[in-house]
Design a binder for these strands. Structure first.
Length: 456
RNA sequence: GUAGGCAUAGCUCAGUUGGUUAGAGCACCAGAUUGUGGUUCUGGGGGUCGUGGGUUCGAGCCCCAUUGCUUACCCCA
C-alpha cells in the first residue's frame, strides 16, 4: 500500500502529554468550580439527529454544521429530479440524517425535554465536551474545540445570572488570569432600542452592526446601519445609547432616559440593575463587571441577560459567553421552561494562559521515580520495591531490563522524572540502593525503606 | 463564500541576477565514557525542494495550473 503523508483535518489538533496535562488543569479547575456551585455533569452524544440541530443557529449556523453521510447506498434513494439540479442543499436532508454537535446548549435542551420526568427543577447541569464547526480556522479558532458549559433550567431568578458572574470570576481567577472583563447586556434593552426607532423587526441587523463598535468605530457602524436599511434619523436617535460611557450606574440612568417610552427596554434595565446589585452584596475578587450594550453577538435565542468575557492581557476574541433563553425547549415541545447558561472557551483560555505563562509546574505532574536495573536479576529485585512505592501513591516506573543504563537515564531525563534508583549486583548484595536526584546529580546509598520514606 | 501570504531534512528556517554535488540550528543514532542522564567534543543517518506542466543549454529560484497550510473579511467561542 502506498504510504500517505500523515495529517489531521484542517482546524483540528493532536494533544500531546504536556498539552494534556495543561488542558486537564484547566478542565479540572473549571469543573471543580461548577460542582462547588451545585452543578452536575452530563454528557450527550457527539452526533445528534440533523433535525435537532438545523434551524437553531440561523442560516449561517446551518452551513457550519458538520453533516454525517448516511450509511449504505444513500444516493439511490434520493429523488432523481432533485439530484439532477446539482444543488447540494436540496439533497442534504436526504443523504444526511446525523450531524456533529455544534454547541452544547441545543443538545442540552433536547436532553431536558427527553428526560423531563426524571429531572428535578431547577436543574443545574454542566457539560465539558468537544463541539465541531465547519468554519474557516484562524487564530484562536478551531473546527474542533471544547466548550465547558453550565446552565440552569427551570428558574427565572436573576440570582442565577449573578451566580454565573461569580463562577466566571472564581474559575478564571483560580486559573491565574489577573485582568479580565465580564461584559453584561440584556436582550430586552436591545429590543427597547429597536422599539424606539420603530425597527423591532430589524433587531438582528441592528445588533450585528453595533456589536462591531470597538472594531470599526462609530463611522463604520453608521455606514453599516445605513446599508442595512436604517435612516440617518434612526442613527441620531440611538447614538447616545451606542456611545454610552461612564460607570454602570451612569449608563443605566442614561439608558432609562433614552428608553423611557419602551416598556421592554425599561424591564431590561431593571434586570441588569438587579444583577449588578447582587454583585454589590457579593463582591468579585478579580473580574471587572461592565454593562456593555454593544454586546450583542451570539445566538439569536437569547431573550434576557447576555454575557461575554474578554481578557485584557492579550489580544484574543472572547474566552466565554452565555445568556438567558426563555423558550429553547419550546422547539422540542416543552413550553414555558426558561434557562440561562454560560460557556468557557477552554482552547482560547489555554492559548491565553500559554502566552502569559500561567501554568504552574505542578500542572504537568508525571512519574516521580524511575527504577533502572542492569539485568533481569535486578528487575526481580525491584518489583517488590515498585509495589511498595505505588502503594504509597508514589508515581513509579520500572524500566524493562536490557537497555543500557545510559539509555534508561536518558529516558528519565526526557520524561523529566526527578529521581532514579539504580539496582545492580552491588546494590542487591548490600541492600543499599543508589538513589539519584536528577536535578542536582547527587547520588546516595539508601535502603529501600529510606527511599520509600523520602518519596512519600 | 471573498482577499492576501507561505510550501526546502522529523521540527524551525537559510539558499545571492537562474549555474555544476541543496545547507544550518534543533531533534535522532553512534562514539569519547564496559555502572550514570542533563553540559562538552567527534562522527553518522536522513531530501522526488508540496504536486503537475511550461520557459531555458540549465529551475529550489521565473511562468501557469493544482493541492495543502496560514492570515484577514463575512460570521462566530
Amino acid at each position: 500500500m502506498a504510504s500517505i503523508k500523515p495529517s489531521v483535518p484542517k482546524g483540528t489538533r493532536d494533544f500531546s502529554p504536556a498539552e494534556m496535562a495543561k488542558r486537564n488543569y484547566i478542565f479540572d479547575t473549571i469543573k471543580s468550580v461548577f460542582r462547588k456551585y451545585g452543578y452536575q455533569q452530563i454528557e450527550t452524544p457527539a452526533m445528534e439527529n440533523l433535525s435537532t440541530l438545523m434551524g437553531k443557529y440561523g442560516e449561517e449556523g446551518d452551513k457550519l454544521i458538520f453533516k454525517i453521510l448516511n450509511s449504505g447506498d444513500f444516493l439511490s434513494k434520493v429523488d432523481q429530479q432533485k439530484l439532477a439540479t446539482q444543488n447540494s442543499q436540496l439533497v442534504t436532508g436526504e443523504i444526511s440524517e446525523k450531524a456533529l454537535r455544534y454547541d452544547l446548549t441545543v443538545p442540552f435542551a433536547r436532553y431536558v425535554v427527553m428526560h423531563q420526568h426524571e429531572i428535578t427543577f431547577p436543574f443545574k447541569r454542566f457539560q465539558v465536551q468537544p463541539v465541531w464547526r465547519a468554519d474557516r480556522p484562524q487564530r484562536g479558532r478551531y473546527r474542533e474545540f471544547y466548550q465547558c458549559d453550565a446552565d440552569v433550567v427551570g428558574s427565572d431568578s436573576l440570582l442565577n445570572e449573578a451566580e454565573f458572574v461569580m463562577i466566571y470570576d472564581e474559575a478564571l481567577g483560580k486559573l491565574g488570569l489577573k485582568d479580565f472583563t465580564i461584559k453584561l447586556n440584556n436582550r430586552k434593552i436591545l429590543s427597547g432600542i429597536a422599539e424606539i426607532i420603530d425597527k423591532s423587526d430589524n433587531i438582528i441587523d441592528l445588533t450585528v452592526a453595533i456589536d462591531k463598535l470597538d472594531k470599526i468605530g462609530l463611522d463604520g457602524v453608521t455606514k453599516e446601519l445605513l446599508e442595512r436599511g436604517f435612516t440617518q434619523a434612526d442613527i441620531e436617535k440611538i447614538k447616545p445609547v451606542i456611545l454610552l460611557q461612564g460607570t454602570n450606574e451612569a449608563k443605566l440612568a442614561s439608558l432609562r432616559d433614552t428608553l423611557a417610552k419602551s416598556e421592554i427596554g425599561l424591564k431590561g434595565c431593571d434586570e441588569v440593575e438587579t444583577v449588578l446589585s447582587y454583585i454589590v452584596d457579593c463582591p468579585l475578587k478579580t473580574a471587572n463587571l461592565e454593562l456593555d450594550i454593544t454586546l450583542a453577538r451570539g445566538l439569536n435565542y437569547y431573550t434576557g441577560a447576555i454575557f461575554e468575557v474578554k481578557t485584557n492581557e492579550v489580544a484574543m476574541g472572547s474566552i466565554g459567553g452565555g445568556g438567558r433563553y426563555d423558550d429553547l425547549t419550546g422547539m422540542f415541545g416543552l413550553k414555558g421552561l426558561t434557562g440561562v447558561g454560560i460557556s468557557f472557551g477552554a482552547d482560547r483560555i489555554y492559548d491565553v494562559m500559554e502566552e502569559l505563562n500561567l501554568f504552574p509546574a505542578a500542572a504537568s505532574q508525571g512519574t516521580q521515580v524511575l527504577i533502572c536495573c542492569f539485568d533481569k536479576d535486578g528487575e526481580r529485585y525491584a518489583l517488590p520495591l515498585l509495589q511498595q512505592l505505588r502503594e504509597k501513591d508514589v508515581y513509579a516506573e520500572l524500566y524493562p531490563a536490557g537497555a543500557k543504563i545510559k539509555k534508561q537515564m536518558e529516558y528519565a531525563n526526557n520524561k523529566q522524572i526527578p529521581y532514579t534508583i539504580l539496582i545492580g549486583s552491588e546494590e542487591m548484595q548490600s541492600g543499599l540502593l543508589a538513589f539519584k536526584d536528577m536535578g542536582s546529580g547527587v547520588q546516595e546509598k539508601l535502603s529501600a525503606e529510606e527511599i520509600v520514606f523520602r518519596l512519600k
